[in-house]
Design a protein around this nucleic acid. Structure first.
Ligand code: FES
Ligand code: FES
Lengths: 176, 176
DNA sequence: ATAACTCAGACAATTATAGTCCGAGTTATG
DNA sequence: CATAACTCGGACTATAATTGTCTGAGTTAT
């Protein structure tokens, strides 16, 4: 499982906690101390999948395209990783030396028993991931932070957007 | 999931179908048309895990160390891949810019909610894999092949060992 | 009109995987 | 008993994917 998934899911949770106001990928990256450019490569995939919607311009950013309860973790993973299978069978059963280069039909018919076991395991994993939505995760997480924290976050983001005038340069104050 | 798992599992099935007589990693590789050297790197891991036992010498090879019904697919995968987690959390929740480099204890306490979802999914997958043994797979697979096939395989292996004298060079007849 | 911001796709560096190679030790052969 | 071919075992190199960086086109408040 790639690291982009962790980045993407955490960002989506922050988006869920600030409905209505768009957050830019740059702010989200600085806010969490991760690479701006890399995150900027993750979000387009989420937009193509219809999970977030982008708005351009100086106060633009990303917004959740649906309700947090309608977005499953599985959707997010597939959007970022590209729905690649957990196990890619290379059909080695057809290369058996006994067949002399032309395997009989009964050998390659259907799915290999080993492959079938893997597919079942993959389905179990995907079912588990599909049963959890962003709202579920946010609920588990929200109980831990003290009430004042939510305000601190809003303040940080406000300070950030306040600098977006012609005079006050933003700089990279969050880095270094 | 790596390709070595597919090779290893298929080899173990062949081992299960010929109890008592050891099969060498070289023969197993040629028999299935895969790389000898690569397979020779997979089997030591299976031996360290106590799944197969090795015997040296000119007629040596590998033997199943336990009954096929006592070897789960999960064991084999862990032996070959090294029990690496499906998702390695990088604890990005602790890098939030609001904390200014020293995150409070309530933020990093316990397991991140996202990580927890992944762990649950991984457990579902592992449970599914642990419920299947080599005997189960062999049973599913054995019903497909016609009865004559089993004899053909034995014959192929016998021809192979027959050439192991000082006069009849083995050559790489199975390759090319 | 400007200037700073936004997204978006093309470009390297790193890491893990797949595959190859050669050496030490063992056993049937003659 | 000497040989020779086989066995396993770990160290080495090529390849593919992932991570991360860079530069360019377009949009919106000033
Ligand atoms: S041929 Fe691919 S798993 Fe059996
Ligand atoms: S910090 Fe790693 S998943 Fe949340």
């Amino acid at each position: 499982m790639t690291a982009g998934v962790e980045y993407g899911l955490h960002c989506l949770l922050w988006l869920a906690s600030s409905p209505g106001t768009p957050l830019s990928s740059r702010d989200l990256a600085d806010f969490q101390g991760i690479s701006r450019s890399f995150l900027a490569k993750v979000f387009p995939k989420l937009e193509k999948a219809g999970i977030v919607s982008a708005s351009e311009g100086i106060n633009g950013g990303y917004l959740l395209a649906r309700q947090p309860g309608d977005i499953t973790v599985l959707e997010v993973i597939d959007a970022i990783e590209g729905k690649k299978p957990l196990f890619d069978c290379q059909e080695i059963r057809g290369r058996c030396a006994v067949y002399r280069e032309r395997p009989p039909s009964w050998a390659t018919k259907g799915v290999c028993a080993i492959h079938a076991v893997m597919l079942r395991a993959e389905k179990a994993m995907r079912d588990s991931l599909a049963s959890q939505t962003l709202a579920d995760i946010a609920g588990d997480l929200g109980g831990k932070a003290p009430p004042e924290f939510s305000d601190d976050v809003r303040k940080w983001l406000a300070d950030r957007t306040k600098g977006r005038t012609r005079s006050g340069a933003t700089e990279d104050r969050a880095l270094s």
